[in-house]
């Protein structure tokens, strides 16, 4: 679906004028239907990486392919944007219309889809994100989580194969965050969409099929969540958190117990501790 090969991205740091690499030799493949989370602290290059996936940024070195299309090839300019949709951090700054359903219609309108087909797509997209009842509302009166779901509907209506979420929950409260994550999981499980989630919340990354950890423009870890989060010390040194129960087990093990080191959820942790106490 998406393939980055030896991807480098250089930019001119102000004043000093020396070239800096926001991305340094990144190799990454995202397969169709996969849910990949990209984790890293602010400034590690994860958002720069995301913007390469639909051609908003072009590599300074290496290649990025979207469904086999080279993002540098101008002939595929709009096809690439149509294939990979993007949801951004600030829900306010991605809504263009003053009525929910008109905003969702924006992308298909741009693509010249006939009116009745747009209506079908808009209704379905709004039902998917559970905002159909509010289709006639003005976006500025919605909560953060609702706005972000409208933004997601706007991307779904474009019918992309893959959606890249660039820190979609960073500005939301816990309730909004849950709504958005539930919507993302629904897209993956029911609509079988490919999902790339850029985040610094480990609770969200835990739900992915695969977690990619970035630091200083490079990929440091690329594995299933259980394997990634068992590396408590490495993650902490990268400025990242691990789930509290994972850390608890890690600390208990250091104190001489022998619990499995790939515990991620409360249930798993409770199961293991129960065994010890019985």
């Amino acid at each position: 679906m998406i393939k980055a090969e030896h991807l480098r991205y250089a930019y001119n740091a102000a004043e000093t004028e020396e070239l800096k690499f926001a991305l340094d030799d990144v190799d990454l493949t995202v397969s169709e239907g996969e849910f990949v989370a990209v984790l890293g602290h602010n400034g590690c290059g994860k958002s720069t990486l995301a913007k390469h996936f639909n051609g908003l940024l072009l590599p300074s070195g290496g290649k990025v392919y979207v469904s086999g299309m080279d993002t540098k090839d101008d002939a595929y300019y709009w096809d690439i944007r149509k294939t990979v949709g993007m949801v951004f951090q600030n829900p306010d700054n991605q809504l263009v219309a003053t009525v929910v359903e008109e905003d969702v219609a924006f992308a298909p309108e741009n693509l010249g889809v006939p009116s009745d087909e747009i209506r079908k797509r808009v209704d379905e997209a709004l039902k998917t994100v559970d905002m159909y009842e509010m289709r006639r509302h003005a976006p500025h009166l919605l909560s953060g989580g609702q706005k972000q779901r409208v933004a997601i509907a706007g991307v779904i209506a474009m019918e992309p194969k893959c959606i890249v979420f660039d820190e979609p929950t960073a500005m939301l409260d816990p309730k909004g965050r849950r709504e958005v994550i539930d919507t993302i999981l629904k897209l993956k499980n029911e609509k079988h969409m490919t999902v790339v989630l850029i985040t610094h919340y480990m609770e969200e990354a835990v739900k992915a099929d695969r977690v990619v950890v970035m630091d200083k423009g490079k990929i440091v870890i690329d594995d299933v969540p259980k394997k990634v989060f068992s590396q408590v010390r490495l993650l902490k040194s990268l400025g990242l958190d691990v789930p509290q129960v994972t850390e608890l087990c890690y600390l208990l093990n250091k104190a001489g117990l022998s619990l499995p080191n790939d515990i991620l959820t409360v249930q798993e942790c409770a199961d293991e501790l129960e065994k010890l106490f019985k």
Binding site: P174, Q244, V266, A270, L273
Partner: peptide, 20 residues
Amino acid sequence: MGLDVPQITRLIDELRRRGI
């Protein structure tokens, strides 16, 4: 009230429910 509690609180809750 729509608030999250720390994961550790949830773990303790779960263990208490299991009779520990």
